[in-house]
Design a protein around this nucleic acid. Structure first.
Length: 83
DNA sequence: GTTGAGCGTT
C-alpha cells in the first residue's frame, strides 16, 4: 500500500479537514489526518493523507508538493513505515 | 501566548 502520503510544512492552525479539502479533488481520500500532540492536542505541523489508489496519491503529491497551503509552503511525499 | 524538520493513531 503505497498510497500513504506524508504532508509537512503545515501551518499550526491547519487541521485534517483542510487536508481533506486540499487532497480530495485530486483523488479519493480514504484517510486524511493532521498529527497533533497526544497530550495537549496541539498541531505538530504535519499530517498523513491516504488515497484509494497509488496513482491518485502520486498525482496529489506532485500537485500539492512544494505548493502553498494556509500561507505556508507545503511538503508532500510518500510516507515511510516509520523512520 | 512559543517552534519549522520530520513520518501517526486506532
Amino acid at each position: 500500500m503505497n498510497n500513504k502520503l506524508f504532508v509537512g510544512g503545515l501551518s499550526w492552525g491547519t487541521t485534517d479537514k483542510e487536508l481533506m479539502e486540499a487532497f480530495s479533488p485530486y483523488g479519493t481520500v480514504t484517510e486524511a489526518k493532521v498529527i497533533k500532540e497526544r497530550d495537549s492536542g496541539r498541531s505538530r505541523g504535519f499530517g498523513f493523507v491516504t488515497f484509494d489508489t497509488e496513482a491518485e496519491a502520486t498525482a496529489a503529491a506532485e500537485a500539492l508538493n512544494d505548493t502553498e497551503l494556509d500561507g505556508r509552503s507545503l511538503r508532500v511525499d510518500f510516507a515511510h513505515d516509520k523512520r
